Simulated scan of single mutants.
Amino acid sequence: MNKVVLLSTRRLPPTYFDQVREDLGDQNLTIDVVGWVAPSAWVADKVNTFTLIGPGRMPSEPAPEPEPATEPTDEAPDAVIAPEAVADPETVVEDEAKVAPAAAQVAAAADEVPVSKPAATKPRPTGAKRVVKAVEWRARKARKVAGKMLPPAIKGSRPVKFLRGQRATSDLGKTYWDRVLSRRDVLSTIDQADVVIALDAGAIWAGWNLGQRKASTPVVLGLPAARRELDMMKAPTT
């Protein structure tokens, strides 16, 4: 039975792991995941292990479905109202006459309850706090002005978006790799893998470093490359 380790910095749905087995041509494949982001739902029945090394928490196990209620076999008899349970009209009038004075006393007591005054306004900062608030306000205003000075056509252009995405991916890739190195359980799981697969751009840096550390284990980018490696392992040697 082959074992693969998936390196991912994106949120993966449970159905993705069914697709992984189908794309790799092995329904009995053992899958271990090292994820920066928790999956979108419960995946314990889809993978061998899912190790979360980023922020957040793993989704909880779904509650079991309630059992359907059993219907009674015999119909319940119609309810019978005893004559003595019905109050006479005169008794009802008497009870209303007794309750009316008490209701009037409650209403009068409610009128005497003092109305709470509105909360006092928050005092303005003074001294050093006032200086700090002023500096923060000017910094926010300067950022807004700087953003407005750049034409929208440039801010939304493909080169600018590409550079921003590359910078964010690079920072995430380095952080992801540092977290992998700091986890002995993750390194132990990777050492037992037949193939290590980096699924996205954020995991490429970790995959490259793992390939330099252990040349005997194939480290590839994407599922098609992993399929070729697994097919080569299954091929008979001559």
Rank of each mutant, 00 (worst) to 15 (best):
D200S: 11
P59L: 06
R228I: 07
A128K: 10
D18N: 11
N48R: 14
V37D: 08
K122D: 11
V86N: 03
E22T: 11
S216H: 12
E84H: 05
I190W: 01
A203T: 02
W137I: 06
R183T: 01
R227P: 00
P89N: 15
A146Q: 10
G211K: 03
T49M: 03
D26H: 00
V160S: 05
L199S: 05
K161E: 09
L223D: 06
R143G: 06
T91C: 02
D32K: 03
G35A: 15
E112M: 15
A206H: 00
E84F: 14
R179Y: 02
P14H: 06
R228C: 05
D194N: 13
D23M: 07
V135S: 08
V5H: 02
T238S: 09
T189M: 13
A41H: 12
G207N: 00
A153T: 09
A97I: 10
R227G: 03
K234R: 15
D231Q: 15
T73S: 14
P66H: 06
R227V: 05
G35V: 01
Y16N: 04
A146P: 01
K214C: 01
Q166D: 12
A102W: 07
E229H: 04
T91N: 04
V180F: 07
W177P: 01
E22F: 08
E94S: 12
E61G: 03
R124Y: 07
R21C: 07
S60F: 03
A198Q: 00
T49I: 01
A69E: 15
S60Q: 11
E136S: 14
A87M: 12
T70C: 00
V92C: 08
W177L: 11
P218S: 13
K174N: 06
R130I: 05
D200M: 09
K148P: 07
S40L: 10
